Computed example of a mutant assay.
Amino acid sequence: MNADFGQLKALVLKEYKEAFRDKRALMVALMMAFMAPIMIVVMSKIMIEKMVDEPPVYIKFTGAEYAPKLMTHLSDNNILPFADIPESDRGIWDERNITLEIPSEFAQNMAEGKPIKIHLQADFTDKAVATPVRRINSAVRDFSLSIGYKRLQLRGIDVRLLNPVTLVEQDTAKPDATFIMISMLLGVYLMMAAFMSGLSVAIDSSAGERERNVLEMLLCQPVSTLKIVLAKLISAATISLIGVVLILVLTSVSVGFVDLTKVGATFSLGLSTVVTLLILLLPICLFASAAQLFLAFQSKSFKEAQSTVSIVIGIPAIIPFAMMMMDDRPQWLDWMPISGQSLIMEDIFKGVDVNWLAVLATSGVTLAITAALVLSLAKKLKSEKVVMALS
């Protein structure tokens, strides 16, 4: 038993030495961990700006002198005439070219209670124009409703008759629930880090060692192929776990630069949350590394391994978003790899108590698939076709 453990320890140390030898390759492998917090901060600020802040909208008015009260209402909603635009932003808004045409008979029709048509002209296929147009529509609609309500009140009609049914929304989320945008991004990035961080190590220790004839010499030693595979798995999974830990640490720091109070949200990763996430993601790190080693050993060359294994990176990004599009998710998704972990992380970030039975179920299935991949790969390494990359 001690001899077996000593062999495995020696193989693991050898794999660690190979993995940490090339510092530049290691930094590239962990680049996802450094970029994810930056992306979370940038996306969060953009979302908060769209949800809360109302930056000025500059449009070209025609006939503004005919509707002074409407112009005042638009100005109160930060919708301003083109003449007020700062010189630095003039090029942007000139390209968007949003025009609002007010008819000359606006005041007369308003006094007579006749319908008034205001023409809004813009390139509605331009995504940059969508938000300003939505705000203009909302502001004009509010102005029109206020005029209509005042007319009814003058005629002694209760304006509440226009709204007989009122929908009252009651949010059942906990008050300390995490900002959903950050949690969604963080969950996806954690999954992708588990797959991306150990990718280069998995490819180099498999297809790379085979091309350098290191694998052949290693198999000539009196060690079992299972120990060799386990050593490579532990090495790649360790780098994956380091990437996950880096994202958690850096995200906790970087989110402090986002003012979440504007949307009434908070974000904090306590020690218990971090430990729970690591327990949840450790099987994913092992599963990702096992899948990458398995695919890399099936490839005929190092370049082919890079192309083949890189396809796996998209899985942790596709599955969570695919699940979001499902109205009725199948029950078996709750305990499958990636999908099960995604659902549990969603509950964690919402502040819901962790369902440890679900954690054990999805972790058990993930580890079972990982074990099957390891045993299958250990068996394949006994074949000359796999070791020599023969067709």
Rank of each mutant, 00 (worst) to 15 (best):
E18Y: 10
I102V: 05
R90F: 12
D334G: 08
T273C: 08
A29S: 12
S254G: 14
L186D: 00
G156Q: 03
K385S: 15
A64L: 07
L250M: 14
V223D: 09
A290K: 03
T276P: 03
V12G: 09
V52K: 12
L260I: 02
G314Y: 05
S307W: 01
L360K: 08
V253Y: 15
F143L: 01
M35K: 02
M345F: 11
A288V: 06
P316Q: 04
S299Q: 04
F20Y: 13
A305M: 07
V387C: 10
D84R: 11
R24K: 14
I92S: 12
A83M: 10
D327M: 03
Q298V: 08
A291E: 08
L30T: 09
P316F: 00
V249I: 15
S307R: 05
I239T: 01
K150V: 04
D84W: 13
M325P: 10
L30F: 04
V312C: 14
D76P: 00
E54A: 10
F143A: 05
L145W: 00
D347W: 14
I147L: 12
T276V: 01
D353L: 10
K232S: 04
L152F: 09
P86H: 03
L250Q: 13
A19H: 03
F257K: 14
T266S: 11
T251N: 14
C220D: 05
S363K: 12
T308W: 02
F302I: 06
I46G: 03
F195H: 07
F294E: 10
K45Y: 01
L70W: 00
Q170M: 10
G243W: 01
F267T: 03
E95R: 07
A83C: 09
I311W: 06
D89Y: 10
A372S: 11
Q292E: 15
F302Q: 11
Y58C: 05
K23E: 07
G243R: 03
D84P: 01
I116G: 06
S254T: 13
V263F: 04
K150H: 11
L11V: 07
W332D: 14
R141T: 09
L162F: 07
W93D: 05
A36D: 08
D89N: 11
E87K: 13
S240W: 02
M35E: 01
E95Y: 08
S307K: 09
A173F: 03
R135L: 13
A372G: 12
L281P: 02
K380T: 02
K300V: 05
R21A: 13
A207Y: 10
A358D: 05
L286N: 03
K227W: 01
M31W: 02
T99I: 00
V223W: 06
A83D: 09
V253R: 08
P222V: 00
K127L: 13
V129R: 14
P115M: 04
D158E: 12
T131F: 12
F82P: 11
L377C: 05
Q7Y: 03
I38A: 13
K14H: 10
A177Q: 06
P55A: 11
K14Q: 15
R329E: 15
D334C: 02
S44A: 15
L343Y: 08
F287I: 06
I118F: 04
F267Y: 04
V365S: 05
I102Y: 09
Q306L: 14
V129N: 06
C220I: 03
T370E: 08
K127Q: 14
L190Y: 00
P175R: 04
V129Q: 01
I46Q: 13
T125I: 11
